[in-house]
């Protein structure tokens, strides 16, 4: 680690101010950033911890029925407190990493990082959630811009994520054997207006919507509805743990399993 200054504001306003400093870096749960710092692969001048800001924590239900999760809420809290209202999201949170990760890592940190194998982006995209920041509201479809890239401006902080709760929904993840991130994960959400399907772990461009599956499932919400579909392997990740063709297979298998369990 290189030396850095550390601040832990207790209000969003103070955090925004702190983030205005040169080379400031927001710190959520630190589950990616701290290892990166230890490897000396990043050298921020100041770390702005978001974990002391009460207004950014917690799970509640909004006036429109959306499930609202504070940006600094750890996965373990989501696993517990979202279980009644949105069990598929709670199950996703309960399956991230291990207990230590779940008690430190936050939803805002995960989304801001946009790891192509992270779980949360699939839930956000599949539900068409709204990402609320200190300056604006961003629709999920506009938020994810590729590997580790999002619509966030420098210094912008995710304060809340609002999930429209689907009638039926489920997340099915196939774990990468070493990291246990999603080798491929599929989140399926069924609404009165139609079905949305988001895939994580598979694409070189990060999380994406599988629109053919959405169409098929909107017409017939059953695993069998996907039987005739094929997933092209172009643009899918090939690495030690699987070829693009393998991931293409998993996209379909995991989506079917998500539908079956929704």
């Amino acid at each position: 680690m290189y030396n850095f200054d550390f601040v832990k504001p207790t209000s969003l306003a103070d955090a925004v101010k702190a983030m205005a400093q040169e080379d400031a870096q927001a710190l959520g749960g630190g589950q990616t950033l701290i290892p990166t710092l230890k490897q000396r692969l990043a050298s921020p001048a100041v770390l702005v911890s978001l974990s002391g800001i009460a207004e950014m924590k917690g799970v509640c239900v909004g006036d429109d029925g959306a499930l609202c999760i504070g940006g600094a809420t750890p996965h373990a809290t989501v696993a517990k407190e979202a279980a009644a209202k949105f069990p598929a999201l709670a199950a996703l949170a309960a399956g991230i990493g291990d207990p230590a990760v779940r008690n430190r890592g936050t939803i805002g940190g995960s989304l801001a990082n946009n790891d192509p194998s992270a779980c949360y982006p699939s839930a956000v995209l599949a539900t068409g959630a709204t990402i609320v920041t200190n300056t604006r509201k961003i629709a999920a479809d506009d938020f994810f811009e590729g590997l580790f890239t999002t619509a966030l401006e420098p210094g912008e902080i995710i304060t809340e994520v609002r999930f429209p709760v689907p009638e039926r929904g489920a997340y099915a993840k196939f774990q990468q054997p070493a990291s246990r991130f999603a080798l491929t994960g599929a989140f399926v959400a069924k609404y009165g207006s139609g079905v949305r399907v988001a895939i994580t772990g598979a694409s070189e461009n990060g999380v994406f919507r599988w629109t053919e599956a959405e169409k098929a499932l909107s017409a017939n919400f059953s695993a069998g509805a996907l039987d005739g579909l094929t997933v092209p392997s172009d643009g899918l990740i090939g690495d030690l743990h699987g070829t693009p063709a393998y991931r293409a297979n998993l996209v379909k298998v995991m989506t079917k399993r998500a539908v079956a369990s929704a």
């Binding site: 054997p177 070493a178 990291s179 991130f181 690495d239 030690l240 743990h241």
Partner: peptide, 23 residues
């Protein structure tokens, strides 16, 4: 079932952390 040390053709260790080396 799990473990494999893998080098690429340039001799870089691809499985150089627990993110890729499965214990």
């Amino acid at each position: 079932m799990l473990e494999a040390a893998a080098y690429d053709e340039n001799g870089q260790l691809l499985s150089g952390s627990y993110m890729d080396y499965a214990m």
